[in-house]
């Protein structure tokens, strides 16, 4: 007997729509296999990454004439829907409360270990506080890009590491500039996220909403 399937056709849709549609389908359930169709390599990557956070196995990935087909199997033993909802809340659930804190979908660019100029201790304290408030936000950013002194936040011994890890657990992609890690000789100490390069970082900064600190 073949598995009950459902298809999400997200071809032609820009990010983050494919992930949002996948999340909705997973929350609705009623199938054993979810087929997601996208036509953009970064959408494919985002859906596959999201599947990991939503406790879905990726059964197959194929490409045919520019269409990527991703076959997901939710793990029935784990609560896929609430986890998925936390990672990418449906747009209609955002900003319900007046003044609700949401960084939903944004890219946060951090190029220093602190916020602003002035006293260094205060700058570091503000950065730490800011990252904590992001962990408490209803909608988390899509990614955090760390550059120059910002990479120090993601290495062993940083007092912001705990908050960056919490954000990563909620599905936030943490990218650290490889040149910067190498310059400060911190590459081996990177404790959360992954190493990125200027081409990827420049591309990401130029697309979508970016908050620069």
């Amino acid at each position: 007997m073949s598995d009950i399937r459902k298809t999400v056709d997200a071809r032609g849709l820009a990010c983050p729509q494919p992930v949002i549609l996948t999340r909705k389908a997973l929350a609705e359930g009623g199938f054993e296999l979810l087929e997601v169709l996208v036509d953009d390599p970064s959408s494919r990557e985002n859906v596959v990454r999201f599947a990991g956070f939503a406790h879905c196995g990726v059964e197959a990935e194929t490409e045919d004439g520019g269409t990527f087909r991703i076959l997901l199997r939710p793990d029935a033993g784990l609560p896929a829907a609430p986890e998925a909802a936390r990672v990418a809340p449906a747009p209609e659930t955002l900003e319900k409360a007046p003044g609700a804190l949401s960084a939903q979908g944004a890219t946060v660019f951090i190029a220093s270990g602190g916020i602003g100029t002035g006293d260094e201790q205060l700058a570091a304290l503000l950065m730490r506080g800011f990252l904590y408030t992001l962990t408490e936000a209803e909608g988390v950013p899509r990614r955090i890009i760390l550059m120059n002194g910002g990479v120090r936040l993601a290495v062993e011994g940083s007092d912001s590491l705990v908050n960056l890890r919490r954000l990563a657990e909620r599905g936030v992609e943490i990218l650290a500039c490889g040149t910067c890690l190498e310059f400060y000789q911190l590459r081996e100490q990177l404790a959360v996220g992954r190493v990125s390069n200027l081409y990827e970082i420049a591309g990401l900064l130029l697309q979508g909403r970016t908050l620069s600190l």
Binding site: A27, A81, P82, A84, A85, R86, P89, A90, T93, E138
Partner: peptide
């Protein structure tokens, strides 16, 4: 604790 029956509850 969030309401388990509502995916958007937190």
């Amino acid at each position: 604790e969030p309401d388990p029956s509502s995916p958007s509850s937190r």
